[in-house]
């Protein structure tokens, strides 16, 4: 009859976590650092997400933005767009939130080891990618070249400016930045993120592209990757969908027959290509 015994614990019960640090990063974006109240590690992989609860308001899926190599706490970078995210933005240090997860598959870090990696970030796509970047930097010798192409709409909307500066300075990181629209003070590159690609020279035999950004971005970036000879299996992307449960039950996150919260949010383009609803 029932293939499994009745479980002991509810998959809908969040763990409690304390907000220990808040840092504004742009007009509508802040980083929030949390510590689980039971003292445990969250134990996530880069590219995974949690369901964040503000009790009385609701839950929202948010990517881990800190690297798992950072112990004792974890960070979420959040744009204020609606009920839960707004309530989070209004919290003070010391507040308690609910956390379920980590959920999802995460970036295939083991496959990336020993390879060159080009990271393409559009807007707040940098939130989950920052977890991967810092992971790579903490285990730098295990990976090949690290190229970061980061695009923002305007100079004001650049995320993690301090960290971008730090990465700029590192010898072992090749960071190229662009904005869609510049202003008087901006002396850098102007244009959408794909316009950076002419400045990058890669060895298509040993490179992985990891792409996260707004839905419209993917098609263009994939075309650019193809031009550079990167095969579909080595183009990796993280997709966003409406989510409620985060654990493969509520059905909201489906792309065709795939549940993004389960099989995703990270897919290779080879997989995405087969999903007609994906991008």
């Amino acid at each position: 009859m029932i293939s499994q015994a009745v479980p002991q614990a509810s998959i809908y019960l969040p763990h409690l976590a304390e907000l220990i640090r808040i840092e504004p990063i742009a007009e509508r974006e802040k980083v929030f650092e949390f510590r689980l109240k039971d003292g445990k590690e969250l134990g996530h992989k880069p590219g995974q997400f949690v369901e964040l609860s503000i009790f009385g308001i609701g839950e929202a899926p948010i990517s881990l933005s800190s690297s798992p190599t950072k112990k004792g706490s974890f960070e979420l970078a959040v744009r204020n767009v609606g009920n839960v995210t707004n309530a989070l933005h209004n919290l003070d240090i010391g507040a308690t939130v609910g956390i379920r997860g980590p959920f999802g598959n995460g970036f295939p870090v083991d496959n990336l080891k020993g390879k060159d990696i080009v990271i393409v970030a559009g807007g707040i796509g940098l939130f989950p990618l920052r977890s991967l970047i810092n992971y790579i930097l903490d285990k730098r010798s295990e990976f090949g070249r690290l190229i970061i192409l980061s695009g923002s709409r305007t100079p004001q909307e650049r995320m993690f400016v301090n960290e971008l500066e730090k990465w700029h300075k590192r010898e072992d990181v090749e960071l190229l930045e662009t904005v869609d629209e510049g202003d008087e003070e901006w002396t850098g590159h102007v244009g959408v993120v794909t316009t950076l690609s002419s400045e990058v020279h890669i060895d298509p035999e040993k490179i992985f592209a990891v792409v996260v950004g707004p839905p419209v971005m993917y098609k263009f970036v994939v075309a650019e990757c193809h031009k550079k000879g990167i095969p579909d299996e080595r183009i990796i992307m993280s997709l966003e969908r409406r989510m409620k449960c985060g654990i493969g039950k509520c059905g909201h996150c489906q792309i065709n027959g795939v549940y993004v919260c389960q099989e995703g949010p990270v897919f290779t383009y080879a997989e995405v290509k087969k999903l007609r609803e994906a991008i």
Binding site: M1, S3, Q4, V6, P7, S10, G248, K249
Partner: peptide, 14 residues
């Protein structure tokens, strides 16, 4: 039964 018991068993249903 299958949908609620695979992967993340749902205690409310089960």
């Amino acid at each position: 039964d299958v949908a609620f018991s695979t992967t993340n068993p749902d205690i409310n249903y089960l």
